[in-house]
Amino acid sequence: MTEHAVAELPVANAPIPAAEPRVAVHSLDAYFGAQRVVRGATVDFNEGQVTAIIGPSGCGKSTLLRCLNRMHETVPTARVEGEVLLDGRDIYAREVNAIQVRRRIGMVFQRPTPFPTMSIRDNVVAGLRADGRKAPSRAEQDEIAVWALQRAALWDEVKDRLRDSALALSGGQQQRLCIARALATKPRVLLLDEPTASLDPLSTQKVEELVYELRGEVTIVMVTHNMQQAARVSDRTAFMLHGELVEVAPTSRLFTTPGDERTEAYITGRFG
């Protein structure tokens, strides 16, 4: 890809408001055993914006994402050092419960992960029932399910078969179902880990449109290996290399006038 081609991409050109950081990362290190896969990352994710994290595979971008809702530590031998502030509070502070953190932050993975034993409707409200005791009533759940499916632009396709197995949906529908499931708990932050990696172009487009529409309401952090996708949907883009956060900048600037020569090398296709 040439620099010229990048400049022609439809970049999300919305003016960047002077945003508050909803999630602030301070000198974060993440390890698998003795191996340090994220090195001293410091970055702010602003309220209501979409931030894309790009970089070659193995650069640690998914790990960084998984540190934001404490999913990293669910892997054996995995370990985190440093701070992640959610609304000013460190989610790694001793008194903070990882489960509570995950309930306030939604996450969607590379491959769609509908729960195969649940219906479409039950999948959407699965997060509401994560804590058995405080689940809302059935009627409230139904209401939330409709709202979340509409929000995920899936309602029209599934409204007549809410009781069917979620496995009956296509891959793209399953992924939007997972987004609906993540939205149902009304999180302020949504983490997307290469959400279109396993989808066909048409489904990819739908998911991208959805991400674009959700900005403003939800703070979104999206890992992607696809630079055009980052250019299309994000307000800001972070570039990672070998576990290091090389550069964070407004998307239009990062793709046109990168501040670091490694970033330039990557976006012009010289490696990765």
Binding site: T74, R102, F109, A182
Partner: peptide, 29 residues
């Protein structure tokens, strides 16, 4: 049972035991 299902449940804020019993065990039932 795919490991991704367990991850998805944990990311929704399911405690480990509830993930194992209501998601993983149910799927393998």
């Amino acid at each position: 049972v795919p490991a991704s299902l367990r991850e998805a449940a944990l990311a929704l804020g399911y405690p480990r035991w509830r993930t194992s019993l209501t998601i993983v065990l149910r799927t393998a039932l």
